[in-house]
Amino acid sequence: MAVLNALPSEFGYVILTYLYSWIMLAYLATKVGSARKKYNVKYPNMYSDKEPIYNCIQRAHQNTLEIYPQWLVFQTIAALVYPLSASVLGCIWVTSRFSYAWGYYTGDPAKRMYGVYGYIGYLGVIFLSISVALQQLGVY
């Protein structure tokens, strides 16, 4: 209970943002699994030599997994001091991953840029994390 008392009261919003991100990852993974079956891409192959749509679906998931650990770190650091701002920024980033994926799912990789607004959330939590670090160091 002491740990919970040490966290800002709004940290519950951050936890809900993490849950939202879990839903997003589960959705993207399910789409890859369905596409793997539909396009007959057998394990352990990550990509298809014959089905570019499958590759787009798989890349939307893979790219999200590539950036997810960094987002989690910055989201957590930012949320320790700015929980509400971090939650809003986190929700923007998570929502953008759906837009990114849906654009990619069209088979036109350029349409993945529908999710470019996610940089607002991603860079936002990075900047908040820098602010937390500078505060911790007594710079301001």
Rank of each mutant, 00 (worst) to 15 (best):
L123A: 15
A110D: 13
W93L: 11
L72C: 15
G115L: 04
I67R: 07
Y82G: 01
L89K: 07
R97I: 01
Y82R: 03
I92K: 00
W71L: 15
R97N: 06
F98R: 11
Y114N: 14
I77Q: 04
Y68S: 00
R112I: 08
S99C: 13
S85I: 02
T95V: 02
G90H: 01
C91N: 07
Y119R: 10
Y119G: 10
D108G: 07
M113W: 09
M113C: 10
F74I: 06
Q70T: 14
F98E: 09
Q70M: 13
V88N: 03
P83H: 03
M113K: 14
V94S: 02
S96F: 02
Q70D: 08
D108R: 09
Y122R: 04
G124Y: 00
Y114V: 02
Y82K: 06
G107E: 01
A110N: 14
G121Y: 02
R112V: 07
A86Q: 04
L84Q: 02
W71T: 06
W93R: 09
V88F: 13
W102P: 00
S96M: 03
Y117H: 14
T76S: 15
Y122L: 15
G90L: 06
V94T: 09
G121Q: 03
V116L: 15
Y122C: 05
P109R: 10
I67N: 15
C91V: 13
C91R: 05
S85A: 12
L80V: 11
Y82N: 09
G115V: 03
C91T: 08
Y100V: 08
S85D: 06
Q70H: 10
Y68L: 12
P83N: 07
S87A: 15
L84K: 05
W102D: 04
G124E: 00
R112E: 12
T76D: 10
D108M: 10
L72G: 08
F74Q: 02
I77L: 14
P83G: 05
Y105A: 13
I77V: 15
I67S: 14
K111V: 05
M113R: 13
A101M: 10
R97L: 05
G107Y: 00
Q75W: 06
V88W: 06
E66I: 03
I77E: 01
M113E: 11
S96Y: 00
A79W: 11
V125Y: 06
L80Y: 09
S85G: 01
W93N: 08
T76F: 15
Y117L: 07
A78I: 05
G103M: 13
C91I: 11
V94L: 05
S96L: 03
G90M: 06
Y68N: 04
Y114C: 08
V94E: 00
L123S: 11
A110Y: 12
F74E: 00
Y119T: 14
L84D: 00
Y105P: 01
V125K: 01
V116E: 07
R112W: 09
S85R: 03
Q75M: 15
V81I: 10
L84I: 08
Y68E: 04
T76P: 08
F98G: 01
Y122H: 11
C91M: 13
A86C: 12
Y105D: 13
Y117K: 03
S85M: 08
Y117R: 04
V94C: 06
G103T: 08
